[in-house]
Design a protein around this nucleic acid. Structure first.
Length: 529
RNA sequence: GGGCCGCUAGCUCAGCAGGUAGAGCAACGCCCUUUUAAGGCGUGGGUCAUUGGUUCGAAUCCAAUGCGGCUCACCA
């Protein structure tokens, strides 16, 4: 990355990197953080936070900085609600109020409920070039890593209460403690802390069993800090320099506000932050989440967008405004936008210098491997065209690649991915008008009048005898001839031809379409007439 | 009640280092010497929500208003 990145015109990730360096001091290394409670599907909105950090991390690294990118799985949180559509809800219900790592995975994909959600994310992030260092909070709490933090919170209980009360409608009670305890009898957090001995002893009551117990937080790791205390404690613990947040956290009176004060109690400082907005979905056709709304995760998005384009969606959008990820016809435009960006990067398209600089940076940041930007543009066939080719070849990616003929070795991999996405899009999301398939010889032939049948038969003969030696335009003469010789209006003949070939009354311009399909296929379909 | 975001062409949005508005789709027109468009080329279309301010100049900065939406004030 050159040093002449202008502060003003630069990409937001570069601006953020500069700001971190400015506010945190010019250090050799920085820590950037993100995290979430894996209490359900980690959806594409959650992914926005991850990629936001990734982009800032890349910007810092390109400035010669060492960067630690940590991702906290807050898996010592409580299982609050049984998500819809989970197998065996009756069993899960028994685990409510226990830490999510103690909840069984009724889908039997991982050791526990939380882990199942974590694994899905950890498996897919490398596909978009993101490699955080994962921190597991349940494991950290249980191995007593945070004993000191918990003790510090207890010591400053009044101070913390005062900070939290600033934004509360109802102040915390006098006997409030900045900790919560999982019962050692039931593992549930239906407990009330009764006292602290000023050292490491905490006395609590199990409210379900009405039993009282005193534990030593050094040996019985059942104590956990509530979110608004846990978050700043971890900032201090890891020395976090940058961590973005959703607007639920970064609003006045939200947890960032209180945490930046609480963190000082732990001897730390608040990270530089930035707010990202939520992601909407468009044209998904009714996938329903546990909370009742549409939801998509990174897997869903990667089905129809190539990894670079998934990154591109986020790279090119300011984080602090909402945008929609489209599964409808907008997909075609997104692919074209990306191809334009690529053309600009490779100097194949003339644009103003200012725009060129901007698009180039977007292209760089969209690539999976920041140290290995492709040396040539991808095979830029329009998405729509690929969709049609795939439908001719019934989704066979290899046949489409072979039919194109001029794909370079450097383009093949990317093209295959793109074709796979195109096929997924057609089969799952494309509008009906968009879809068709070539008739099969096993299909019932279309019922026709004799002269219509004869016209198709003539057409078959012309295809067999002349298609390969004619230009598209020359061949269209034969189409008109087949109609005229059998007393058919052109419009009627086109209609029956489309019906015979693709089962629809209309289709792509016929001569070109027949040529793309190739002699053999057309002849075999028409041979039944 | 506090905070934030959005309001730009019929639709979806870009433009926001201030210098007389852009894209895609839709519409309309033309084209491949004959009625097929899922192809190509082209055209039209916006007092940039309103009002005021700063400025030589504002969609862009500031302030207020309206409408739409999110979020905090429980928990995480």
């Amino acid at each position: 990355m050159s040093n002449d990145v202008k502060k003003e015109g630069a990409h937001w990730a570069d601006q953020m990197a500069e700001r971190i360096i400015r506010e945190k001091g010019d250090k050799d290394s920085y820590t950037c953080a993100s995290g979430i409670t894996p209490s359900g599907t980690v959806h594409i909105g959650n992914f926005r936070e991850i990629i936001t950090v990734d982009l800032v991390v890349r910007a810092l690294r390109q400035r010669g900085k060492k960067v630690r990118f940590i991702y906290s799985w807050d898996d010592y949180d409580v299982f609050r609600k049984v998500p819809k559509n989970m197998p065996d809800p009756g069993l899960l219900e028994k685990y409510l109020r226990k830490p999510i790592t103690l909840v069984p995975d009724t889908t039997h994909q991982a050791e526990n409920y939380a882990r199942a959600n974590e694994v899905r994310v950890e498996r897919i992030l490398p596909a978009v070039g993101i490699y955080p260092e994962y921190l597991y909070q349940a494991e950290r709490y249980r191995s007593n890593r945070y004993v000191k933090g918990i003790r510090t919170a207890l010591e400053h209980r009044d101070e913390i209460r005062k900070i939290l009360d600033e934004y509360r409608t109802e102040p915390l009670k006098e006997d409030w403690y900045p900790v919560s305890v999982f019962s050692s009898f039931t593992d549930k957090d239906n407990t009330t802390v009764l006292g602290w001995d000023g050292d490491y002893g905490i006395t609590y009551r199990d409210d379900d069993l009405d039993k009282v117990e005193t534990i030593d937080i050094r040996t019985t790791p059942n104590t956990k800090l509530p979110w608004r205390i846990d978050w700043p404690m971890r900032w201090a613990e890891e020395g976090v320099d940058f961590e973005p947040g959703g607007k639920d956290h970064l609003t006045e009176g939200g947890s960032y506000d209180t945490s930046k004060k609480v963190v000082e109690i732990f001897g730390g400082k608040a990270p530089v932050s930035m707010r990202y907005d939520f992601i909407k979905l468009k044209g998904m056709g009714g996938k329903i989440s546990s909370s009742g709304g549409e939801v998509a995760d990174l897997y869903d998005v990667l089905e129809i967008y190539t990894p670079e384009i998934v990154r591109y969606l986020f790279v090119g959008t300011r984080p602090n405004s909402e945008f929609a990820i489209s599964f409808d016809l907008d997909v075609l435009k997104i692919y074209e936008d990306y191809d334009n960006c690529e053309r600009i990067y490779f100097g194949l398209m003339d644009v103003k210098e200012q725009r060129r600089e901007k698009e180039k940076r977007i292209y760089e940041l969209s690539q999976i491997d920041s140290d290995n930007i492709p040396a040539e543009p991808g095979y830029q066939a329009p998405f729509r065209h690929l969709c049609n080719l795939l439908q001719i070849y019934e989704g066979d990616v290899e046949k489409v690649v072979a039919s194109l003929g001029d794909v370079t070795p450097g383009q093949e991999g990317r093209l295959r991915t793109r074709l796979t996405c195109a096929w997924n899009w057609i089969t799952k999301y494309a509008p009906e008008e968009f879809k068709w398939s070539l008739a099969k010889t096993s299909d019932e032939p279309v019922a026709l009048e004799e002269n219509e049948r004869k016209a198709l038969s003539d057409l078959r003969g012309y295809v067999d005898g002349h298609l390969d030696s004619c230009s598209e335009r020359e061949f269209s003469e034969y189409i008109y001839k087949a109609a005229a010789d059998n007393g058919l209006e052109n419009a009627d003949f086109f209609r029956i031809t489309y019906l015979a070939l693709i089962g629809k009354e209309k289709g792509p311009k016929l001569a070109g379409f027949i040529k793309v399909c190739g002699r053999d296929r057309i002849v075999s379909i028409l041979s039944r007439y």
